[in-house]
């Protein structure tokens, strides 16, 4: 809806909307991930993965939040998030719902690449 505008003659800049507009979001990535890693559906956002995350001790990488972004079709924040994971797999061992968390990251990265190549 709203485009970011740089500083103008009025002396202020305008930010983009941070609201997730579900109706204009792109759910292709979510569908790709869900079809490749069906356990993705099972996440109930307990945050266990984020709590144990090796990368999360060094940066703001947050798998639980990333999953939420995927579900809502918010791709922009995902693009950067997905590159921070070290794929160490600790999250797999703590997930109470048996989500194949590590593969979610791997498939998400794949999906984003495909999106960039218009292959989704």
């Amino acid at each position: 809806m709203m485009s970011a505008t740089g500083a103008n003659k009025f002396g202020f800049a305008i930010n983009r909307s941070r609201m997730i507009d579900y109706d204009s979001s792109d759910r292709k990535v979510r569908e790709y991930i869900t079809s490749r890693e069906p356990s993705f559906r099972l996440c109930f956002a307990c945050g266990g993965c984020t709590a144990t995350c090796t990368a999360g001790q060094h940066t703001s990488f947050n798998l639980r939040r990333m999953n939420t972004y995927i579900r809502r079709g918010e791709i922009e924040p995902l693009r950067e998030e997905v590159t921070r994971c070290m794929l160490c797999g600790k999250c797999l061992l703590v997930c109470p719902r048996g989500v194949n968390t590590r593969n979610v990251v791997a498939v998400a990265a794949e999906a984003i690449r495909k999106l960039e190549r218009n292959e989704l």
Binding site: A55, H58, T59, E80, V82, T83, R84, A106, R113
Partner: peptide, 12 residues
Amino acid sequence: EKVPTQSYGYLV
């Protein structure tokens, strides 16, 4: 060329 390049620039 496979995936978006991982970035561990945050490591100190």
